[in-house]
């Protein structure tokens, strides 16, 4: 079975035709559609997008528990937030054998006044967050304090920690903030997790113990 269709026999001897009716109706429809769709949005300038949970400044202050003038400050400043460029600075050196408590400051300086992200956003939602730490090449150990806030999935959040500096050495210190991890584990104190997303993952290079 085949089907035959032929095309293109155009007979151009046109008769006069009653087209005015179609013309008017078509024109009417055109006008109708045009009139209710062409009122486009006004030409106002676009609004600036306010990014939530932006963190610009992350400052880790280690204070010697027996000498509060002995501090080490690790600061990461990212004026555009997590997705922009950042500058890391290290002020001070750890003293071998000393014990330090870590104080964390996380702020959004792009707002005026600056937003205290740690106290206003992270701690109230501690059950969705988890701080992890890691070191490389430097003899630092850490423990999560007994009065540390409870974080996600039964682990301690990691905002109150105690650090012990061992023999003189230098290396890197890393801090990561995980949002909504699937599992967490703080049994080795540094912290491990699966799933979720990293709000922060910052490495400070060239931290020293003397």
């Amino acid at each position: 079975m085949n089907t035959i269709k032929t095309t293109n026999i155009n007979f151009l001897n046109l008769n006069s035709m009653k087209t005015s009716k179609f013309f008017i109706s078509a024109l009417f429809c055109l006008t109708l559609i045009t009139s209710f769709t062409s009122c486009s949005s006004d030409d106002n300038d676009p609004k600036e997008v306010i990014e939530e949970e932006l963190i610009t400044d992350v400052i880790l202050t280690f204070t010697n528990t027996s000498d509060n003038t002995d501090t080490v400050v690790l600061a990461s400043i990212a004026p555009d937030g997590q997705d922009g460029a950042s500058t890391e600075t290290i002020t001070g050196t750890f003293t071998a054998g000393a014990t330090y408590s870590l104080g964390l400051v996380l702020t959004n300086e792009s707002e005026n006044p600056a937003d205290d992200v740690l106290n206003d956003d992270i701690i109230p939602e501690a059950d969705e967050h988890f701080f992890k730490y890691a070191v490389s090449g430097i003899n630092l150990t850490m423990t999560r304090d007994s009065d540390d806030t409870d974080g996600a999935e039964g682990s301690k959040l990691g905002i109150k920690t105690t650090w012990v500096a061992g023999a003189a050495s230098s290396g890197n210190v890393q801090i990561a903030l995980i949002h909504e991890p699937q599992t967490t584990d703080d049994s080795d104190e540094w912290g491990a997790s699966t799933g979720g997303s990293e709000d922060l993952n910052i490495t400070f290079s060239g931290v020293e113990i003397e």
């Binding site: 085949n2 089907t3 035959i4 269709k5 032929t6 095309t7 293109n8 026999i9 155009n10 007979f11 151009l12 001897n13």
Partner: peptide, 22 residues
């Protein structure tokens, strides 16, 4: 092709196929 003799018509193509094929 079918050539229909008509006062205006010209040579026209006729395609025979299993489908319309323009």
């Amino acid at each position: 092709k079918i050539n229909l003799e008509h006062h205006i018509e010209e040579l026209n193509e006729v395609t025979l196929s299993s489908d319309i094929f323009i």
